[in-house]
């Protein structure tokens, strides 16, 4: 039961020196209630493919795909009004920089209530109550006090909790998290990942986690897609990926983890490509 299916997605950016293909024929699907991790380094196109789904790419990007469907509905053929009803309600997204994602001029309460009023049509009072409920659900301490705080008065971890509260406000069926813990400390990272996993299970949401961190993948994913330079290198369930990585690039990524260092030197991805070329 695929919730989101993408086949042969291509994203090309028009630049001064001609087209640049950021995503080159990617297939992704995610089932209901599944946690999919998309792993890759900067420039692998991992964020761009999900921004294409959300319709958040700038005008210079051209998006083509053989298929892009959500729950059987064709996303590319939708009118923009229809798409707006889908994005932000059934599919929501959180980003890497929680503090930058929030507007510094408004209280966090105002910002989450705005989402609730516009997307769900709640009254002011109902929005306030629901916001408090969501703050409790994502584990913000003293929600009654924090709801009137401005983003700068909260820590990075707390801001990310606010973003998560906003993202789950409409009971989405798919949450896309783009590097949600990269800017955070390890102990806070652990808390946020635990929160995402708990919410994912409680709400039965599908979760797409975009990350470059193999540790995060190991702790969360059901299935993993490895991307490199806009192409899919490997797709496997999490256990097979770590147990027996098939693609040399995946093996390179795993062996570049400092905890897997055996000798004095860390193997790097370019070492692997040299080995491959020498064969």
């Amino acid at each position: 039961m695929a919730l989101l299916t993408i086949r042969n997605l291509k994203v090309t950016f028009a630049t001064a020196t001609g087209g640049f293909t950021a995503v080159d024929g990617i297939d992704v699907h995610v089932d209901r209630g599944e946690v999919l991790a998309i792993v890759g380094e900067s420039g692998s196109g991992k964020s761009v493919s999900m921004l294409a789904v959300m319709g958040l790419l700038p005008d210079t990007a051209s998006v083509t795909a053989d298929e892009m469907t959500y729950d059987g509905r064709d996303i590319l053929a939708m009118s923009s009004a229809e798409r707006r009803r889908l994005i932000g309600r059934e599919i929501t997204m959180i980003f890497q920089e929680p503090i930058a994602s929030l507007n510094p001029s408004f209280t966090v309460g105002f910002q989450i209530e705005e989402v609730l009023r516009l997307n769900l049509g709640l009254s002011r009072r109902a929005a306030r109550d629901r916001a408090l409920e969501l703050f409790r659900a994502v584990g913000i301490p003293e929600p009654e006090v924090k709801i009137d705080a401005y983003p700068h008065q909260m820590s990075g971890g707390q801001c990310q909790r606010v973003m998560i509260a906003m993202a789950i406000a409409s009971n989405p069926r798919l949450l896309i998290a783009d590097e949600p813990t990269t800017a955070l400390d390890v102990t806070i990272q652990k808390q946020i990942l635990d929160l995402l996993m708990t919410l994912q299970e409680d709400y039965g949401m599908a979760l797409i986690l975009i990350t470059h961190d193999m540790g995060v993948v190991a702790e969360t994913a059901d299935r993993v897609v490895v991307q490199y330079k806009g192409r899919k290198m490997e797709e496997a369930d999490v256990l097979s990926l770590f147990e027996a990585p098939q693609h040399p690039y995946t093996r390179a990524l795993l062996s570049a983890l400092p905890e897997h260092a055996t000798g004095d030197r860390l193997p790097t991805v370019s070492d692997y490509f040299q080995q491959e070329a020498a064969r």
Partner: peptide, 25 residues
């Protein structure tokens, strides 16, 4: 607590987590 929060990429740990999740489901 720092050690406990550091993600584990050990295959056995992943196997245990996958099994836990399957059981919960």
């Amino acid at each position: 607590s720092l050690f406990a929060a550091t993600p584990v990429t050990d295959v056995e740990a992943i196997r245990a987590r996958v099994a836990r999740r399957r059981a919960a489901r």
